[in-house]
Design a protein around this nucleic acid. Sequence first.
RNA 1: GCGAGAGUGGCGGAAUUGGUAGACGCACUGGACUUAGGAUCCAGCCCUGGAAACAGGGUGGGGGUUCAAAUCCCCCCUCUCGCACCA
Length: 831
Amino acid sequence: MKEKYNPHSIETKWQKQWEETKAFRVKEDPGREKYYLLEMFPYPSGRIHMGHVRNYTIGDVVARYKRMKGFNVLHPMGWDAFGMPAENAAIANRVHPARWTYDNIDYMRTQLKRLGFSYDWERELATCDASYYRWEQLFFLRMWEKGLVYRKRSLVNWCAKCQTVLANEQVVGEGQCWRCDTPVQGQELEQWFFRITHYAEELLAWCEKLPGWPDKVLTMQRNWIGKSYGTEIDFPLADGSGKLTVFTTRPDTVFGATFMSLAVEHPMTLQLSRNTSEEAAVLNFVKKVQGTNRRPDSDVDLEKEGVFTGVYCINPATEEKIPVFTANFVLMGYGTGAVMAVPTHDQRDFEFARKYGLPLRVVIQPNGEAPLSPESMIEAYEGPGILDHSGPFNGQDNETAKKSITRYLEEKGQGREKVQYRLRDWGVSRQRYWGAPIPMIYCERCGIVPVKEEDLPVLLPLEAEITPSGGSPLPLLKEFIETVCPQCQGPGRRETDTMDTFVESSWYFDRYACPDYEHGPLDTKRVDYWMPVDQYIGGVEHAVLHLLYSRFFTKVLRDLGWLKVDEPFTNLLTQGMVIKDGSKMSKSKGNVVDPDQLVKKYGADTVRLFCLFASPPERDLDWSDQGVEGSFRFIQRFWNLALDCRGRIAGKAFSPEKVPAEGAGRSLYIKLNQTIKKVTEDIEDRFHFNTAISAIMELVNALYLFQAEQKDDPLKDTLLAGGVETGLILLSPIVPHVSEELWNLLGKKGSVHRQPWPQWDPQALQEEEQVVVIQVNGKVRSRITVGASVSEEEIKTLALEQPRIQEWIQGKELGKVLVVQRKLVNIVVRH
RNA sequence: GCGAGAGUGGCGGAAUUGGUAGACGCACUGGACUUAGGAUCCAGCCCUGGAAACAGGGUGGGGGUUCAAAUCCCCCCUCUCGCACCA
């Protein structure tokens, strides 16, 4: 009697066994080659979603595959456990964020275990544990000592809903909060910053040395860092009271600068207009601009506006007096917040000049075209050309002029070459409760004083009451705030801001190497063994956020002496989203598929199989309930095959020497080896599990036929045994439970997961008979089957002899006959 | 506007270096088994013509290179993602 495939009993049984035997625990072993496979850890939001299932299934297949290939595989899991949702839940359900978070972790852990992922659960960590974040506080102190942390008053991004500041990287779309989509407002606040700009050049340079990363991600990072070469030019104020400095990538156009524009936030804007007749107008304008959203809409450009500040400065090239404006389109956050305006060669300045009747002077004439004149121009000319109206530089081409004018200004002491980055420092202060406290103290006498290292951790007080208003309760908590200044022993006040949760996720992968280490953040010996991560897998939405921060942090920890690696992730796989009915799964769309229910209905193996089979990992996965049924059917099909021939193959050991030299047995053997090769290469080289699975399906189809047609031959039974067992091994990383069960039911010893990964027999692939396609003028007209020993010359002859081919070439002039690798013959004829 | 990626049957997707377009699966159609089938097995399944053999067309559109193009080159269209007044 054949057992029925019952996924639940099988899966519970093996999961229990893996758990009890700690099957996936790893130890550092310098004698073995390591492989560190990591998936982006989840935020414990309550339940896992299909995106997690997909991400972790992809990772698990690779981890299991690498283990079978003999690597010492680190495959850990943990929780990105600080963050806003816990506070929101606290308000909504009157439950403490800690309680909510740890309950979620407990539930989600069981969900992950039900999917059969091969994690070393002994390395599990949660970033909200003091045993984790205490080290982050230590990093903060050391970075402070090195000048990599500083406090500064500046214009920051404020999310009114989350009631906190956001980093530039966390402002997404059209200026919205990455978490809640609320439009972000600008606010002037004093904040803690990490000096990521110190590493701008290195972060950029290493983009060239990460061949295992997708180009898309590297491009996004390069653009985000945004390096450009240009010149800083000083424009003295006309009254001699100082100067304004601009950054420009077009120093070649400086002779055309007929006015200047300052950002409304530029410190000089209000200062210059003070006590002039323009003061009121400027003040008005600044207020008005700051009150509006200045991000241009996707389709309509914001109209350029500005007002005269009442003062003039001197163009250092022309020595002319030019007016200084403040304008709504000048950004304070880039360059110096002041720009020289060249209306003829910059579209924004052109529009501005036309609106306010400011003078235009053409200083670049396009090559070989009619010369430009200010009267006839309808838009700015931003292309290359020859200098005009530029004094001694007339006649130079503009690229040369960039250098010569910069040199000229340098000699005058009014300019210098400048490399400008778009990247700005990482604001890490969050006005939130559920995060790692920033270990700093304010003292009236000593100013800002770091907490002493021996006093770490600064514990997040768990007795805090979350207020329904949504603000952080920390500033209200006397026991927390009131402390002693470590320097003068006088009264001190603790920093109540917590750290951005992206700080925690910037080094968790290092801590997995030694999650239990108590003498420091990282145990050098273990971390050096495991780092860097060989393969990192996660969503592309972190292309600049988490992935840039992690790269930065790795370099910081290296420079602080805790790490030896320059980069954290050697290879990166960004998986696509899970889509249903044309859009991303979301509660609001109502197209969410619950992993729990699927596992309940079909079992984890089916869910895993479908996630891998439906599309290659980097593409979006289109969810299909019928597709899931198909995956379930395939598992059953394999189950039935294995058990149907259990009697025939029991105790029969496969050996390649016994394979028949020809016939159905030989074909099956060839198919088997083709499958091993295809599956191995698809997993190893490109993570294309979908095609790996198709190949196994083909093998199963072949085994079915073979089993039905080839009977009464013990030799064929051993071949069948070899086919079924190899199929099981190939499938085991994908559907681990059912493969282990069948391995057992077939009476095989040990665990299928401990089997070495099969190798293909290259001989078998070579000697295969080939179908050769015969084309006439590129169109397929016939096919012949040839053996391995047939030469190209013979194939050519055979092809021409074919009656069907004769019909096509008869009476025509025979041209070239091309033979391609025993695959194809193309006969060229003219008529 | 700039940058990146994609466009292949009714659907998800194959075709790895230019060499049989549509593997594998889903859906659908027919058949077998059956009291029954929403189980299982077998077969068919790009379009047009044809009973079939076969012929012609076909990978977003147009052009080109080549014995041969989904694949390479040029132009255009559509979609997705990222950045976006960056001086």
